[in-house]
Every structure is written in C-alpha cells, then in structure tokens.
Design a protein around this nucleic acid. Sequence first.
DNA 1: TGCGAAATGAGGGGCGTACCTCAGAAAAGC
DNA 2: GCTTTTCTGAGGTACGCCCCTCATTTCGCA
Lengths: 343, 343
Amino acid sequence: MQRPTVNDIAKEAGVSLATVDRVLNARPGVRARTVVRVNEAIERLGYVRDVAAANLARRRSYRVAFVLPDSRTSFMQALRGAIESAAGLAAFDRTAARIVTVAAFDPTATVRALAGLDGVDGVALMAPETPQVRDAIGRLAQAGTPVVALVSDQPNSARNRFVGINNLAAGRTAAQLVGRFARRPDPTVVVVAGSMMARDQMERRLGFDETMLRFFPGATILPSIEGRDDSDVVAQRLAEALAAHPRVDALYALGAGHRGLVHTLAALGLAGRITVVAHELTPAARAALEDGTIDAVITQDVGHIARSTLRVLRAAIDGTPLDPGQEQIRIEILLRENLPPAG
Amino acid sequence: MQRPTVNDIAKEAGVSLATVDRVLNARPGVRARTVVRVNEAIERLGYVRDVAAANLARRRSYRVAFVLPDSRTSFMQALRGAIESAAGLAAFDRTAARIVTVAAFDPTATVRALAGLDGVDGVALMAPETPQVRDAIGRLAQAGTPVVALVSDQPNSARNRFVGINNLAAGRTAAQLVGRFARRPDPTVVVVAGSMMARDQMERRLGFDETMLRFFPGATILPSIEGRDDSDVVAQRLAEALAAHPRVDALYALGAGHRGLVHTLAALGLAGRITVVAHELTPAARAALEDGTIDAVITQDVGHIARSTLRVLRAAIDGTPLDPGQEQIRIEILLRENLPPAG
DNA sequence: TGCGAAATGAGGGGCGTACCTCAGAAAAGC
DNA sequence: GCTTTTCTGAGGTACGCCCCTCATTTCGCA
C-alpha cells in the first residue's frame, strides 16, 4: 500500500492527469463540478503532495538573506555562527542563505540593504524599529517576499513573523530569579542596561520592573547603568556604582558586556557575593556561571533561532504548514547545573 | 550560477556520469586515482547532493516504530500526542511512524514487541533497562536497524543514541532550585518518588542528593515517599508525611502524580506556603505553576523529543550528518513567568 | 606480448511532480 | 441548428538523482 500519486487521483476521479494537475495547482480551465470530484478523490485516497518531487520539478530553490547589524558583541557573533552553521546544513535542502551586514543603528543603511537584495525569496531582518524600516518591509511584502523579524520584533510592519523570545516575559523571569536568589528579602538591585536593540531591552526592563514591584515591593532598584553593550564601559560604570552604593545585593544585566561585569566583580572581591542574573549565554557568561560569579542566565538558543528562521521562511515561500511548537523560541533559564555542554 | 549537479562534476572531473555516480554512492569498480579526481571536482564546485531528488529516485521511505509503555501518566499522554503530531508533519517527508504500546515493566512483552516489528527501518524505544531488552536491541542493531533510546537511556546496549535529558543534571538543577527558593536557609525537604522508569528517576535522585549535600549541607531530607506515579497514592502518602512532619519547607516531586500533590497541598492549606519543585510540564503542573502552588518545573520538551527522534532515525537510516546542537534536549526550568503559551 | 580482470563510458528507464501544447469534446450563446 | 467558448484528455519534456546493462578501454601480470 504505497502512498497515492497524482496518477491514482486521476484514476479515482475518472479524469485525466492534466485535469488533476490543473486542480492541484489552481490553474484555470476546470469546471467547478470537476474540481469537486478531484478534491473528493484526493480526500478519499488521503493524497499528500510530495513536496520534494514538486520542488524538484519546479526547480525551486530557496535563496534567503539575513540582514544583521555589524555589532560585534558575543551574542551577535554567536548568532552569526549559528546562521552560518544552519545554512551549511540547509544546503542539502536546496536552501542558500546569505548574510548581509549593515551598520547598526543606521536605518538608512538598513533600508538600502533591504532594497538592494536581488534574487532573494525570503528575508530575515534584525534591526531597530523605525518607520523607514517598516516601510521597506512593506515594500518587500508587497513584492511577495516574506520577511521575518529576528530577535527584536518589528510590530505593526508587514513582517510575516517574529522569531525570538517575548522580552517582556524574559524581564519578568529575571525579576523572579533576582528576587528569589538574593540573600536579603528586600534587596538593593542594580540594573545594567545596554542599548543595542532598543526595543527588546526596553521590554525586558518593563517586565523586570513590573514583576519586582509586584512580588518584591520592598526591593530598592537603583538608577540603571548605561553600559552601551561595551565591556569597558560596563566595567567602569559598574565600579563607580558599586562604590557609591556599598550595599548592593543583586545585579541584573540586560545587555551585553559580560566580560566587563565579571572583571569588575572580581576586582572588587565581590564575585559570588552578589546575586547576578544576566542575559545570553556568551562564553564569558558560561565561565562566570561555572565559577559562581553569575547565578543564572536567561537565554535564547541562537541555533534554534537560526534553524527556525530558515524553516519559517521556507514554509512561507511555498505555503507549507508549520509546527507551531517547534517555532516557539524558549526563554531558557540556565544555572550551573543545567548548562548544556559547550560547543 | 545554479548549484552544480552530477553532470557538472562529470565534466569538471573529465569522467562519465556513471563514474561520478559510482563514487557518490560508494559503489565498487573505480580506481582510487579516479575517486580522488572526482572528489576534487566535487570540492572545487562545492557540490552538495540534492537529498530530495536522491530520495525520490531511490523511492525511499522511512518506516519508524515507537515502542512505548502503556503507562497513562500525563507525561506519557503528552509524549504520545507529540509523537503523533510530529509524525503527521513528517508525512510530507515520506516518513511514516507507528506507535506500538507495550505493558509497562514487562521486559518479555517489550522483547516480543521489538522482535515482532516487521518492515521497519528504525526503532525508538522507551523501556526500563534489562538484560533481555539490551539483547533485543543488539539483535536489531545486528540486522542494521538503528535504535534510539527515548527519555530513559539504555546504556551498554547497541542503541544508536539516547534522546532525552541528562537526569543526573536535572536532579542537580532541582536541588539548586529547592535550596535557593526555600524560605529557610536550612530547609526540611520531602522527596516524592515515582517508580515508572527506574533508571531516570534514580539518576535524578542521585543528582539531587549530591547537590543538596554540597550546597545546602544544613538541609534535612526526610525519607522519600513512594508515590508510584499515581495521583491517589501521592495524595495519601503526602498527607501522611506532612502530618508527621509539620515543619516541611520544600517538596521535590521527581515522578508523576502532580494532581495528587496539588490536591493534598490545597486541602492542608499549604499551597504557596511550601516551596515545590516538580518534573514535567503536565496540565496540572501548568495550572499549579500559574496559581503559585508549584514554584518551578523542570521539564523536557516532548515535541522536541519527538521531532529529534525522527531526525536522528532518518539520519541514521541514510547516513546524513546531524546538527548536534539541534538534537540536544534541554533541561528546561519553567517559572510562572517563562511558561510557554499553552497548546 | 598477450590475456583476463578491472575500470570506465554510454545510455536507458524510473521516481513524483510541474508545465506546456494541441486536438477533441462538451457546454454555452445565438 | 450553428458557431464560439470553455473544458478536458493525451502526451511530451524536464528536474536531479539512482540503478541497471552492455560495450569498450585500460591496467596489471604472467
């Protein structure tokens, strides 16, 4: 009992192959009555189109472009690496991915990059949300090119989908961890902000404040530090803040610059004595988690993001269904104990 | 600039199509020198075999069997559901999965089921570890049928791979959460054991004890409760234990029976007053997490397990490479704040 | 040097689908 | 009734690869 093919449908429906083909591919020139008969036959036989064969015949290939900021944080490096690796394996499925790098925080450059994409069937974009970018996404969508927003969402745009975590929820999770892990019931907390993707960090901050206020109303949250996602800046400003407030119990790092943070804590002899929750599993964060400087890391799996993006784009390109559970990017909480193996 | 095909390789290497084919499919009858030339051409052109076309021509389909215990815990139901759903989507990739149910804890029945599989290209097995089962796996492997162990490992067997989490690490993670979330520094802890898969629960217990001893040496761990993975049993024995030890601070549930646990805590007015860490995101656990009865859930994504198993088996069947990162099942920590959307 | 064996070339048929053309049949309009 | 339009059938070619057969060439070795 092999799976049925177009030929079986033709026989079952009592029509010719050509007609079945017309119905399957929604080509004109078939009476409504006949369409129904064919569809009934398809139903009866449980026919599922062989996508592989179809794509072969269509000689379709998927050309996908990733438009990413030229930021050099560990997270971005990891993301780029994950995309390259996922693209390497996707080559087996006739998918070719290209990475286009754009000056961070430069909407004009981003728009130019988006407009300059030629011969591309789908686009993944990580960029701050601005009106110009939103319009550029609209133009791509208009032209039938699906667009997914990566890591930082582009709401109110014509993007097909967002691949990334809910940063509001991530911030809430961080708050719960900070509040519960802190040694004192009414902790004093320092927030180290970054800047990179304005939107996601803002959302994390919002969620953090909300949950702190609700569950740990006795906590004191000091004015946040602008670390600019730069380890040196983080190191210096954090040192200043800790000098000014000797009784800090916890640290929440919602941006990049883990190396600077770790460095300052070690220098002040505070490693392991202050509760630290940070975002993204960078090499520095992993090491700090292992030696106890950082207590918990909240992260999104860049490998998952890369693979999910490719799947989502492919599905959008040829209208295949998706498994929603598979595309849900998790807000992962990592302690020293559940750290996945390196590499 | 299309991607190169076998014809391009033939031209580039200065050999015929037949020879390229022999090399690609490792068929005999090609001089070593020629093999090298062909491989160089492949390298030079960056050829990647079109797996879809290859499988089409081979008219290969993947018939996979899942051998599962007939246990009716929520976790098993979720796992079955995930497998069915993954199998539904895998139909597009000419993969047909079948679920074979076997009496739990019956090695003979398991062995019989494994031996009775006909016309199957790969097997996924979830069963307690026994010598008979190990031998049955060996026979399958001997016959060239890849086997993966699901959820509970079968070490020292000829299984191709284990798809599931490191339960030792999961137990350690639970200990860290219990120790840190408990309201008292030297908490009294009750462990609710199950029984289902002897091996994984034992490992969790080991990891839990190890980490409690190391990081929270002041903690008191009471004799564990044998819940038999049954809500009614859990409910009753837990009530007895809590009556006997009124000063319990934390609960670690490493098996099934969440409904019973929640019920007893509610009945005693202890919901939200005792720190509770449990395994697996069942509907009861989700609800308890949301209303604060359970503080943290440690879980493994059944959808991921199902999909990963199918990918691993397919890769084993036709020798395709795998993305190791993609097949790493995470030890997920879920709080109320980072609960993935239901469904 | 010649011989058998090994290596290679040439070609065909097929997998399940897409897409094209052209002739003929059925339906619609007058 | 007729013509005109709309449907339908038949058949071919192609996609990239697998697998088979049957010559023909090249090689290793006595």
